[in-house]
């Protein structure tokens, strides 16, 4: 490839990439701001997962009964407080579609 051929090939590449970049996109991807409710729902999901793990490890024999009961109670309390908070936030957002069951 001669120098001139190289430059022509480069110019064609530039043109093709320029068209790709600035080709009109009618609906570019966007995303609404993540709300506190979204965050709380994620947290709830994580707490449920922690509960599942705890129960599984108990069934696998890693926890004595009293340890399991104590830890499960702590996690359940945390989850209950979170659900209360989720409901409170939901009540202050009247336009929002009812929270889907997770």
């Amino acid at each position: 490839m001669t120098e001139m051929q190289g430059i022509i090939a480069g110019a064609m590449l530039t043109l093709a990439l320029g068209i790709y970049i600035f080709w009109p996109e009618n609906a570019p991807a966007n995303q609404s701001e993540k709300s506190r409710l979204d965050y709380l729902l994620e947290r709830k999901e994580q707490l449920y997962e922690n509960l599942r793990d705890l129960t599984f490890e108990y069934r696998a024999g890693k926890y004595p009964e009293e340890d399991f009961v104590a830890q499960r109670s702590l996690l359940e309390n945390e989850t209950a407080l979170l659900i209360t908070e989720i409901e409170r936030v939901e009540r202050t957002r009247p336009g929002r579609i009812a929270l889907r069951a997770r």
Binding site: Y48, L51, R52, T55, F56, R59, S73, E76, N77, T79, A80, I83, T84, E87, A101, R102
Partner: peptide
């Protein structure tokens, strides 16, 4: 379904996804 503690402002029963 996972049991939730009784003395809560949250519903007494909450449907959870549980693998166990």
């Amino acid at each position: 379904t996972v049991r939730m503690p009784a003395a809560r402002t949250a519903p007494a029963e909450a449907a959870l996804k549980g693998g166990d």
